[in-house]
């Protein structure tokens, strides 16, 4: 046993020595990375660590944090019914809008890529603009299309066609809230994934297509699967990460459309729950615990999707 430990330690020492030597030789690399790394650790890593720490405390910003242990997590799962609703809603939104938005982004990017150059640049603008200006235009969903009285367009069309007798309170009735929010989310979800797909598609080597054609690829679908997708894996990965983050962290759309808090908490997601505890009740400790749960969910989901994308085109 002792021998084993000794061996392990010498191995470790050796590894460390090798790493140190390598590090010495690549001083230039560290110099290049240093400015970014410094700011990144200060403003992106440190806050995450701090908020994981607060997850185990009672902290209301005014008093200094009081250590609680896992109490926050226990009450989250056992006592907080609204949290369970919010998990259900978040999962629903993530499972439906995440993949749909991702596929739509790729589909549009791919189809747009077939167009002649000048139409293509106009089309990219048209498809991307909702995700830039999304929030400013949400009013059309709330005040025009799905307004709850007879003046709402959907209600008035439905009544003219005889589909419904009385106006439906689209954004107050828990039955309809989530689907409507999902439509709005999908509308503005093309986002950065879409852009990177467009850029990636342009970067695919033209000669690959010609080679593929010589090798007997018959239609655009085969071309997509065997040539296009495998050669833009990095972009696919980026799009996946962005759409997971987007799908799991939806809050603005739901808060703007359904109000906050929404009827029966039917439109509550993990992030709005967190917002409620963090910035309305100022229970930062509890909010941090919620954030940590969300974070773990996202990482797990990301792992699963990365292994899925790794298999593309094989």
């Amino acid at each position: 046993m002792k021998e084993y430990f000794n061996k392990y330690i010498t191995l470790r020492k050796h590894n460390a020595k090798v790493a140190w030597k390598k590090a010495k030789r690549s001083k230039m690399c560290y110099a290049f990375l240093a400015p970014y790394a410094l700011i990144f650790f200060l403003f992106y890593v440190a806050p995450v660590v701090v908020s994981i720490f607060y997850g185990f405390t009672y902290y209301n910003v005014l008093e200094s944090p009081r250590f609680l242990g896992p109490q926050n997590y226990i009450s989250l799962i056992l006592d907080d019914d609204i949290f369970l609703t919010s998990i259900k809603n978040t999962m629903l939104i993530a499972v439906i809008t995440g993949p749909l938005g991702y596929i739509a982004a790729f589909l549009f990017a791919w189809l747009i890529n077939e167009l002649p150059r000048w139409i293509r640049s106009v089309a990219v603008i048209i498809f991307y603009v909702p995700s830039i200006t999304g929030f400013a235009c949400l009013a059309i969903f709330r005040d025009i299309l799905f307004k709850g009285d007879a003046y709402g367009l959907i209600n008035s069309w439905g009544m003219e066609l005889g589909l419904i007798d009385t106006p439906i309170l689209w954004l107050v009735n828990p039955q309809y809230m989530l689907p409507i929010c999902m439509i709005a989310i999908l509308w503005q979800s093309l986002g950065s994934g879409f852009l990177s797909f467009v850029a990636g598609l342009q970067g695919v080597d033209r000669s690959m297509y010609e080679a593929g054609y010589m090798d007997g690829i018959k239609n655009r679908w085969q071309e997509l699967w065997f040539i296009t997708l495998p050669s833009m894996k990095p972009m696919l990965m980026f799009g996946a990460v962005m759409s997971i983050t987007g799908a799991f962290s939806q809050s603005q759309v739901l808060m703007q459309l359904c109000g906050f808090p929404s009827t029966d908490y039917a439109a509550r997601t993990i992030v709005t729950h967190l917002y409620d505890y963090g910035f309305i009740r100022f229970e930062m400790g509890y909010a941090s615990a919620i954030a940590t749960v969300l974070f773990l969910m996202m990482i797990l989901c990301n792992k699963a999707i990365q292994s899925l994308i790794g298999r593309v085109g094989t």
Binding site: C29, V48, M298
Partner: peptide, 26 residues
């Protein structure tokens, strides 16, 4: 170079943390 992989993984992970959470520590 030593640490490059780890650093990049950290960056990827940090893209997933929700901005509202890090506001107070920030």
């Amino acid at each position: 170079f030593p640490g490059s992989q780890t650093f990049f993984k950290l960056v990827t992970v940090s893209m997933m943390f929700v901005a509202q959470v890090t506001m107070i520590p920030n």
